[in-house]
Amino acid sequence: MIAQLRKLVLGETWTLPIGVAVTLLAGLALSSAGPDWWQPAGGFLLLAGALATLMAALRRR
């Protein structure tokens, strides 16, 4: 049951939670540093992080 719950929340591979964590930490660091470009363009950086995470998870099966 616990293993199934872990799989339900984190998925079948560690690549996804690690990739999402890295994207989140980069986003948190940049938003608190507050560069001028963050507000208009930061979303695209987050999108790139999520897409890179997906591609990495598909390669590490």
Binding site: L24, G27, L30, S31, Q39, G42, G43, L46, A50
Partner: peptide, 18 residues
């Protein structure tokens, strides 16, 4: 779900989506 995820994450981190 992934699109909503990125969108909300951006909003929470102060992004203004074009």
């Amino acid at each position: 779900l992934s699109a909503f995820g990125v969108f909300f994450l951006g909003e929470g981190l102060g992004v203004e989506w074009p």
